[in-house]
Design a binder for these strands. Structure first.
Length: 114
DNA sequence: GCCATGACGGAGC
DNA sequence: TGCTCCGCCATGG
């Protein structure tokens, strides 16, 4: 289980109709503060894998994408809207409403008993 | 092996 | 509210 495997494992936990932020994924993957690695990991994985990468957005509730990847902003947005996630006038997602709230005990069993 | 870069985040101004 | 800078670390040239 390497760094990226952890990230992918977490991303795959995101349920349909929910989104998670890079920072959140990083924390759940035991990489708190290393959100960049999450973005980098997802950048490499969009390779025909089954990772729901479109459910990962930045902390501002907005979709980010690399200019090097075929205008995926519309694609990602479409995929999310198809799952019931709504965007406001500014293209933002209401995190309060759609952010995934995982069972922390599943990721940090040791800390859950504190 | 060194340097630049990158789907981010948070602090500072 | 919005922009800039710094930290983090894996990857590619």
């Amino acid at each position: 289980m390497n760094t990226y495997s952890s990230i992918y494992a977490v991303v795959q936990q995101i349920p349909v109709g929910r989104v998670a932020t890079y920072g959140q994924i990083a924390t759940l993957a035991n990489l708190h503060g290393k959100a960049r690695l999450v973005g980098y990991a997802l950048y490499r994985v969009v390779d025909g894998s089954s990772i729901p990468w479109h459910r990962v957005i930045n902390a501002q509730g907005k979709v980010s994408e690399s200019p090097f990847r075929n205008g995926s902003d519309d694609l990602q947005r479409s995929l999310l809207e198809a799952e019931g996630v709504e965007f406001n006038h500014a293209g933002h997602i209401n995190l309060r409403q759609y952010q995934w709230q995982p069972d922390l005990a599943q990721f940090f069993p040791d800390e859950s008993r504190i």
